[in-house]
Structures are given as C-alpha cells and as structure tokens.
Write a protein that binds this DNA or RNA. Structure first.
Lengths: 121, 121
DNA sequence: GCGATTAGTGAACGATTAGTCAATAATAAT
DNA sequence: ATTATTATTGACTAATCGTTCACTAATCGC
C-alpha cells in the first residue's frame, strides 16, 4: 500500500557487514556504505535510521545463529573493541553470542585476529 | 643549543597509549590527544609528525619489551584490527611482538577482548 | 649582545564526518 | 483519477577530522 523498496535488504546488509567487519566501526563511513551498498544516503537513513542502528541490526542478525566464520569473528571483534564499552545493547548481543563458551571464543577471536597479520606476509 | 622541551615525553606517550588502547586508532582524535596530553596541536605535530607516527612510536616502544598487560594487549589488538591490514611497518611490529607464540597470544588477545564485555555487567 | 636552532602557540585549511530534508516518484486502495 | 502511504533522490548542514604554518619564545655557542 505504498511504493515498494527497490533494494534487496539482505544484500545491503551483507555489503555493510563486510565493510564493518574489515574496516571496523569508526573506520567505516556513511560514504563507504553508500558506495558499497548502492543505496543513497537518504535511503540508507530511511531504512536503518543511523549508522549505529545499522550496525546493531547486523550484529543482532549474526547473533541469532552464530557461525564462527572469519567475517563473523571480525564483526564480533569490532563490536567488542569499538562499541561494547559504551553501548549496552551491543554489549548484550556480544554476551548472547559468547554465552558460556568464553574459553572457546577467546581462542577463536584471538586466532582470527592474528590470522590477518600473516595473510599479507 | 636550542629551546628545551617543556613536556615529559614519557608521560605524553603514556597518555596517548591509554587513549589508543581504549578507544582504538580511528576512535581517537587529535583533539582527544591534545586534551589528554596537555600538548597543543602544533607541539604534538612538531614532536611526533602525525597521528600514525605517534601510534607507531608507541607500538614500537611496547614491542621492544612486551608485557602482556591489559593495556598492551588492547594496543596490540588495535594495531592488528585498525592498522595492520594496510600498514606494513605496523604489521611487522605486531609480528615482532607475537613471534612464534601465536597460540599463546591468540589466547591472551581473545581473553582480553572478552574481559571488556563483562566488566560492565 | 647576536645568530642559530629548536619548542610552543593557536588560528586556519580543505576534507570528511554523520545526519537531515524538501522535492519527486511509485505503488495500493477507493 | 484521486488520495494515502512509503521510497528515492541528492543537495545541504554543522561539526569534526588530520594537518599546516607564521609567529613568538627560549635556549645555546659565540
């Protein structure tokens, strides 16, 4: 009962996720997101409200059924390092992912962090 | 044979290190550094050249005799996540720190990352 | 005293930041 | 065809970003 969306939300979220995962939260600008997703700023804001909200949505999505892929581990690292200290909802999503497996996740997160170092020789 | 410095370089570096460690590289602005160190922008740039250079100096300093304190682990995490992918000298300093102990450091880095999550309940 | 050299000062720069908004467009229901 | 509703567009804003620089100040050897 209104104009339909022209973009595929899942694809937009996938592009944004990749950017946040590899460049961090503060290292990813709205312009970066505009470029990567193809959406214009206005549409991005109408659809997701804010950069912070977009990030939370992405994190919530992967928290819902977490798989320890490099990208997801990167995103969890970004959430923990760039936002968790000052953003309770983000912190809670991190807790939801990790649960009682903090030993396991410590290993996964650390190994994933170090892996980046070696890729570029 | 010139005007002497009025600031204590070690103290300035300590303040900057703390900021970078807790807020990340992109999360730390020059204004933040000016505030925390007490130095004015001009002095900061005369002494250290650039934000990137200041960070490298700090990382080099801790790389020289690395102790796995929370702050140093935070700083290594920041170096790895915010800079290593696009900055070879930084990457090499990370490698120097980790050496052949990547299993050990994976655990330390991961545990340190997760610790932040629990502090704020 | 006088140069030479280096440090401190802070206004200013262009670029980029996250976010807004009035105009236009596309759909569905009546 | 008209109306209601939601989406797209991109120019715009105020703030902040990292960096520069002309100026002043303090020390040294002479």
């Amino acid at each position: 009962m209104a104009r339909p969306r022209e973009f595929d939300e899942a694809k937009v979220l996938a592009s944004a996720r990749q950017l946040f995962a590899s460049n961090g939260y503060h290292g990813t600008s709205i312009d970066d997101l505009v470029q990567a997703t193809g959406l214009l700023r206005g549409s991005l804001y109408k659809a997701f409200g804010s950069k912070r909200n977009l990030f939370e949505k992405i994190l919530a999505e992967i928290a819902d059924d977490f798989k320890a892929t490099p990208e997801s581990l990167d995103l969890l690292t970004v959430a923990l390092k760039d936002l968790a200290a000052v953003d309770k909802p983000i912190r809670l999503l991190c807790l939801k992912i990790v649960g009682k497996n903090s030993k396991t996740y410590a290993n996964l997160l650390g190994a994933n962090l170090l892996a980046k170092m070696k890729e570029n020789k």
